[in-house]
Design a protein around this nucleic acid. Sequence first.
DNA 1: GCTTTTTCTGACCGTATGGTCAAGAAAAGA
DNA 2: TCTTTTCTTGACCATACGGTCAGAAAAAGC
Lengths: 205, 205
Amino acid sequence: MNEPRAIRKPSRIQKRNRKLILDAALEVFSTYGYRGATLDQIAAEAGLSKPNILYYFTGKEDIHIRLLNGLMDTWLAPMREIDPEGDPLEEILRYVHRKLEMSREFPRESRLFANEILQGAPRIGPHLESGLKPLVDETAALFERWMAAGQLAQMDARHLIFSIWATTQHYADFDAQVQVLMRGQSIHEGADAYLDTLYRKLLMV
Amino acid sequence: MNEPRAIRKPSRIQKRNRKLILDAALEVFSTYGYRGATLDQIAAEAGLSKPNILYYFTGKEDIHIRLLNGLMDTWLAPMREIDPEGDPLEEILRYVHRKLEMSREFPRESRLFANEILQGAPRIGPHLESGLKPLVDETAALFERWMAAGQLAQMDARHLIFSIWATTQHYADFDAQVQVLMRGQSIHEGADAYLDTLYRKLLMV
DNA sequence: GCTTTTTCTGACCGTATGGTCAAGAAAAGA
DNA sequence: TCTTTTCTTGACCATACGGTCAGAAAAAGC
């Protein structure tokens, strides 16, 4: 009947408006959290009416879930790009810088995920299990092979991954704090250099 | 008239109920964020009626602000305990372990602050400037003196502080994710050992 | 005991919010 | 062109939420 998402391929208008809505929702959800965001805010940000928003999505939760799922791949791409055939140290350092770059380029995405995890992952919990865990298991196994081969210093691979996430995403998630404490100082270059040193010293055999 | 917080010293009942409310509020705010928390939830958690909550606090925001301010000192205590006369490496490692311990012991406090900073610090922004910044400036200066004296490897002191916060608080703030990825494995001991290695390698001259 | 003060609550209010619906406006198809 | 489908919206609804208030219940003071 009037279910746009049903069978036919999306029209131009449909594509444009869905993008508009998801982008507006990213802005609002990442700033105020799921509960703090309102459909009216999202509608205003998207330049559409509230009922029109609900013409394209079945509800607030639907928007949130689709947003999270759609972004998950982008978010995990850098980890997928780690080359098992490359030089271990350089591959991991490249991963660190790529993650840092993403914190700079996509802070809203970082905060969206942070908000969701902080509150116990009520809506992407299942996707952590099915999407994230296999990739992390695989990557941790790769790191362990590298360590066993003497190409990296010995350590817990999963905690290594956690620390890379923590140190890089910190600049997006805690930006409000970083801004206060770094008033006037250039943050990006410093972070790049600092994390390079940190992980180089940690990983070198 | 009926303003309990006015002049007289708090009665036993007042002390008990305020504690009850703040503890319940910590639970609820840290789980759902400011906007996601409701007075009814807090009241239920505290075992009091909603109007009774509002007898002790002037409103939802009042509770949140008092909670944040009251917790700030506790949260910053480990940084204050860094001894300028102690051995630099040992002092910083002790700080790291103390912060990790707090993530374990007070995850709700960690998440409460994380929620607030994530959303742009709308309610403790001013207190970051007046409470946090001076302490961080002081500590960064201490670290820089240690580096200049050749007792620590040279690096950006503020980014060092950020990385310590990020890596330790990660275990509280992103617990939902850590739990999924470490299913069945003991997290605490691993984190302790890993971070010890990390910061030892980073800081050693 | 009695009086005063403190503590507590049921009932209520105004607003915000997620969501619905019937019908109009605009595209697309013929 | 006319018809059909897609898109859009104003008006509306039910519920949830922060907050108020008059007065009851319980402590404290005497």
